[in-house]
Design a protein around this nucleic acid. Structure first.
Lengths: 171, 171
DNA sequence: ATTTCATTTCTGTTTTTTCTGAAAATAACA
DNA sequence: TGTTATTTTCAGAAAAAACAGAAATGAAAT
């Protein structure tokens, strides 16, 4: 593997635990994203020095998220895999996935707790107030996300680019 | 523990792994956040049925993030702990921490890789292009975050509330 | 149809993370 | 200062996650 590529793949792997995914899944994705051509499972095995079965399972996970696609290369019997190339599309999938896993379940739990309180469950005033505020925050996040998600991708990108400029918010 | 409170604490614990923190840390924080009064370490031990030492370590972590403070209760020799109560402040700390752990190191790695390429390291054209795009995205995120972070908290909240409204972005 | 190559499933091992309990350290009180 | 209450440190046990390798399944080619 070319040094620069190797460095990136290893770093992706190191970051994996912080991103809440397994190291191998992250490494494989980095490899596919930065590689100039689709790779067969065996080539991934060779590049990363890992068990064939594990590559198979990791690829399944990546495909289930929609960040990696299977492609057929003519003249080769094996399946090949390639990552989505557009960073913004990748970013979007990542964000959706995180919201689904990290926000939605808690929003649900908070609503259920609120429902219990409304039905007269015994609760301290202070607890009730904290619950109300926390639920409000999560509802707001949910709406915010829904709102920005409804815009076409191009507008979202523009919006972020605007916000990145100094003073872009001040209007 | 009151049922509603217990439900919330258990849920926080379940979500912990998805949020990239340990279960106990999350449970303790939920307990302190929703509880009407500061709690002593022993009270946490009793409420959660966990080893004293573990509570101590988890509290240290929470304090290092600044989400939990120590308070003295007169007439009680023991230390007591309470969570920051303002949800927006909590949210902010969480976001800062995540950026620090999940974005900053990768931004650094991407810059280093880019520097290698600029210094003439052998790289495929395609790889180089993917690197450039990915770095651009991360730089943008970094700037965006820096920009919004520079606003006073109140403005940030307003901005999110605006974005949450349908059509709030369309102007 | 059977042989061959490729992929997946499954079981067990290794590694990592979380958590415990005893011992050491620290701080309050008399 | 000595005594007791409280907190922290640390080594290792228990639980969870990542990973390997063999066996089973499936799919193309002759």
């Amino acid at each position: 593997m070319i040094p620069v590529l190797e460095k990136l793949v290893l770093h992706w792997g190191e970051m994996a635990s912080r991103w809440g995914i397994s190291r191998m899944v992250a490494q494989i994705h980095a490899l596919l994203y930065f590689s100039p051509k689709p790779l067969a499972a065996d080539e991934i095995v060779e590049a990363l020095g890992v068990a064939r079965s594990h590559v198979s399972n990791s690829l399944r996970e990546l495909r289930s998220w929609g960040v990696v696609k299977m492609v057929h290369i003519r003249g080769d019997r094996r399946e090949h895999f390639q990552s989505i190339q557009d960073v913004w599309q990748l970013f979007e999938i990542l964000l959706d996935e995180r919201k689904r896993r990290e926000v939605d379940p808690t929003l649900k739990a908070l609503r259920e707790a609120q429902a219990l309180v409304n039905d007269g469950a015994k609760t301290d005033t202070h607890t009730r107030e904290r619950l109300r505020e926390m639920l409000e925050l999560f509802e707001l996040m949910d709406n915010w996300f829904g709102g920005i998600r409804r815009l076409p991708l191009g507008s979202r990108v523009k919006l972020i680019k605007l916000g990145a400029k100094t003073g872009g918010w001040l209007r």
